[in-house]
Design a protein around this nucleic acid. Sequence first.
DNA 1: CAGTGGTCTAGACCACATC
DNA 2: ATGTGGTCTAGACCACTGT
Lengths: 243, 243
Amino acid sequence: MVLKPKYLIIAETLKQRIQNGTYLPGTPFPQQSKLAQEFQTSRVTVRKAIEQLIKIGLVYTQRGAGTFVRTTALKTSHFDRAVDQYIGTTKLVGDQSRVSSQIIQFQIRYPNAEERQLLNLTPHEMVYDIQRQRLVDGEPYALEYTKMPVKTVPGIDETVLKASVYHYIETTLHQKIGAAYRKISAAKATEADQQYLACQKFDPILRLRQVVFLENNVPFELSETHHRYDKEQITVYLPGHTK
Amino acid sequence: MVLKPKYLIIAETLKQRIQNGTYLPGTPFPQQSKLAQEFQTSRVTVRKAIEQLIKIGLVYTQRGAGTFVRTTALKTSHFDRAVDQYIGTTKLVGDQSRVSSQIIQFQIRYPNAEERQLLNLTPHEMVYDIQRQRLVDGEPYALEYTKMPVKTVPGIDETVLKASVYHYIETTLHQKIGAAYRKISAAKATEADQQYLACQKFDPILRLRQVVFLENNVPFELSETHHRYDKEQITVYLPGHTK
DNA sequence: CAGTGGTCTAGACCACATC
DNA sequence: ATGTGGTCTAGACCACTGT
């Protein structure tokens, strides 16, 4: 694909206009037919662009009335964390230079039953089994247990693990990250948590278990991440019915 | 609206076929043009129906190849918890008869600064301030701190609070629940948590803070819910780019 | 009533996967 | 080369909100 689809370009343009205050919260938003004229396109395409903004919670529509920018706070995060990029630690923090990693364990082995099922593997397709301590600005940030199929993410080594696996996948393997299933829970700190997150014995842990897919829908990561309860929270926006 | 939009009817039909095994995971899915013929509609409408299924993680598409049912586990929850209905405790559990509530506090007062901002209120528009212990099958399930504008949700009383506010809003007020912002974190158990969730002093708590909107995008609830760490986890599905 | 967004059509052409 | 999904058009009509 040489050129981005028109509706994504329009979505980005509208997003910028919201950011720079061209369209103010609560106030107007040009009607769809006007936008179609402006962008030299059809109304259907404009609607598709607006749909993107609805999905990330920037605007909402009211039949018969118009389209409006959301006033609500909590909104700050939506500009930097697009829908598909709040999945990896490095991306979560945003600034890659602030993130560093200590490798606690790194081995390649055969998958167990759960890994075979969730990563869709046969018994002889091997997985990386990785434990990393992630630090932001030198402070412990997360403890990660990651399993990835070797066949799907070939070439992982210590250099990659010290930096960002997601970055490696996108730049070197030229793959894009797709959907993800996440389960979020609270847990008691394990001994490893106490050690690598520098937390107390009775501190709670925010635990995130997820299966992540590439854009071609091949699962490539099964992971469990532990966060200090006082350093991280997870923000979710649930659109109502996207029409 | 007398009749449901055609694309939603098609989406439901396809969903049922996935459930009853007509379309098997990994296996085929009729091509969009064929489905358009079958449902006597245009391909655009069929695509809109499929979009719904993608959003809840039931299927995925691959350009040039076809549409496929997701194999991955974790899938069970998607049939019962539709996108827009995992917000209230009563709905979360599913079976209303199993849920009961003890009212700990119920008063009406003027809003503080945070409430005014997040619920979009003027200083003289009053809010309900409610604390409830929620039980499932008689066992403590959650401790809820809820603030709602009186003007938006009129007529709340002890009878409603003993049952379900969401049910009241939908049946008596004839409003529908829309979008929601949620922040999920882990926390130490407070004294109230220990008392009303019957948990130990050093047990972690799963904490959910959210602002919920009606379908017309008026915010109607600002709440904080505490869950026992061993009784609840939150499942999220993040679609990649929905095209 | 006028004006808005929501649904829908019947085509067309493009990008990609598979053989 | 064929077949799939992805993008796009230029209309039409419906449902709802406001006055």
